[in-house]
Simulated assay, not measured.
Amino acid sequence: MTTRDDGELTLFSARGSGGVAVEAALTLAGQPYRLVDAYTWDKDDPQSGDRVLAANPMRQVPALVLPGGEVLTESAAILLWIVEAYPEARLGPLPGAPGRAQLLRWVSFVSAAIYSLYWVKDDPSRLVPDPAGHEALESRVLDRIAECWGKMDAQVEPAAFLLGEAPSVLDLYVAVVSRFRPRRRRFYAVAPRMAEVVRRVDGDPRLAALWAERMPFGPGWEG
């Protein structure tokens, strides 16, 4: 079992980012945290994104600083840490429990196969210097994201939620990342079984205030 200090957590995150999945997990776990907004993509305010450098030299959110000063980066790692650090919250199977292997598999899949592609999609010049190739690259990346959601949907066996009758960090992760482009309408089309799950997560009353503040359901949010 992961040990913990019940002092204050510090989370570097950003409104509308993948860090909101971590914010949601801590909310469901009933764990207070100090939030530091760091908008790493805001070219008009680079100092906002630079705030996270104190915790993550990759200049990426989320980053979680534990009370003793230890730093966790990578959304998948943070979510899995929360499962073990706060077992009473029941946000996923613990080591040795049924379903644990699938939790590890699919959290890692969302992180490696889908979430990582936004580093390319959000700034195609990182890999393709010629602007003439950016549109085609972005289109191919979005197609790949949709394909990966479809592959996952074909292999999971959801009940009310992806791992059973109770929500887990996996559900939170999918609900947040599926709101990025190509956005929810396409996600619903390629992943109809997971579509029902993320709608339940969207409607969880315990998260209503968080969604409204950090990832609002504004006009056109589904795409």
Rank of each mutant, 00 (worst) to 15 (best):
residue 172 L to K: 08
residue 168 S to L: 01
residue 148 C to K: 08
residue 175 A to H: 07
residue 136 A to V: 14
residue 131 P to H: 15
residue 150 G to L: 06
residue 169 V to F: 11
residue 177 V to P: 00
residue 187 F to D: 00
residue 153 D to L: 01
residue 152 M to A: 09
residue 147 E to S: 04
residue 186 R to Q: 14
residue 185 R to T: 14
residue 146 A to P: 05
residue 178 S to D: 10
residue 148 C to E: 14
residue 143 D to K: 03
residue 186 R to W: 12
residue 187 F to Q: 02
residue 149 W to V: 00
residue 133 G to Q: 15
residue 166 A to G: 05
residue 154 A to T: 12
residue 155 Q to L: 15
residue 120 V to Y: 03
residue 157 E to G: 13
residue 155 Q to F: 10
residue 134 H to Y: 14
residue 173 Y to G: 00
residue 188 Y to H: 04
residue 158 P to E: 12
residue 133 G to I: 13
residue 178 S to W: 00
residue 179 R to K: 11
residue 174 V to G: 02
residue 184 R to F: 13
residue 127 L to I: 13
residue 121 K to S: 09
residue 150 G to V: 10
residue 145 I to Y: 03
residue 177 V to Q: 08
residue 151 K to R: 10
residue 147 E to M: 02
residue 175 A to W: 00
residue 129 P to Q: 15
residue 134 H to D: 10
residue 137 L to W: 09
residue 130 D to N: 14
residue 155 Q to V: 11
residue 183 R to W: 10
residue 177 V to K: 00
residue 174 V to S: 04
residue 137 L to Q: 12
residue 181 R to T: 08
residue 144 R to F: 04
residue 188 Y to C: 07
residue 142 L to K: 09
residue 123 D to K: 10
residue 131 P to E: 14
residue 160 A to Q: 13
residue 121 K to G: 05
residue 184 R to Y: 07
residue 128 V to M: 05
residue 187 F to I: 02
residue 155 Q to W: 13
residue 135 E to N: 15
residue 172 L to D: 08
residue 143 D to H: 05
residue 156 V to Q: 12
residue 148 C to F: 12
residue 184 R to V: 13
residue 175 A to M: 03
residue 163 L to C: 12
residue 154 A to M: 08
residue 165 E to Y: 09
residue 185 R to P: 02
